[in-house]
Simulated assay, not measured.
Amino acid sequence: MAADLWTSALSLAGVALGGGLTALAQRATQRSAERVEERRQAVATTESRRAEQIGVLKEFVACAQAAERAAYSRPDPWGDDEGGWMTRTGPVMTALWTASGNVTLLCDEALREPVTTYGHALNAAVWRDIGGIEVNEHLEAAKTAFMDAARGSLAGS
Rank of each mutant, 00 (worst) to 15 (best):
A150Q: 02
R27N: 09
R112H: 13
W6P: 02
Q41N: 14
S153I: 02
D81K: 00
I133M: 15
E59G: 04
T117N: 14
T144S: 09
M1S: 10
E52D: 11
T45P: 03
V43W: 00
V43P: 00
L139F: 00
A66V: 09
A121L: 11
H120R: 15
G90H: 04
R88F: 07
G131P: 05
D81T: 00
S32K: 13
G156E: 09
G131D: 03
V126F: 03
R31T: 05
V43D: 08
Q65G: 13
M147E: 12
A13H: 01
A44F: 03
A121W: 06
G20Q: 07
L24G: 14
L21Y: 02
R112W: 13
C63D: 14
W97S: 14
L12F: 06
A33P: 02
D108V: 02
D129Y: 00
Q65V: 03
T46R: 15
R35Q: 08
G14P: 01
L12C: 06
Q30W: 11
A9L: 04
G156Y: 04
A149I: 04
T117F: 09
D4P: 01
A9T: 05
H138Q: 07
R128A: 08
R49H: 08
L5H: 05
A149F: 06
A51W: 00
V92H: 15
R31F: 02
V126T: 12
A70G: 04
V92W: 14
F60P: 01
V36M: 13
G156V: 05
E34W: 00
T98W: 01
R40C: 10
A70E: 11
A99N: 11
L12T: 12
W127D: 07
T116W: 08
G90M: 13
L106W: 05
E47Y: 06
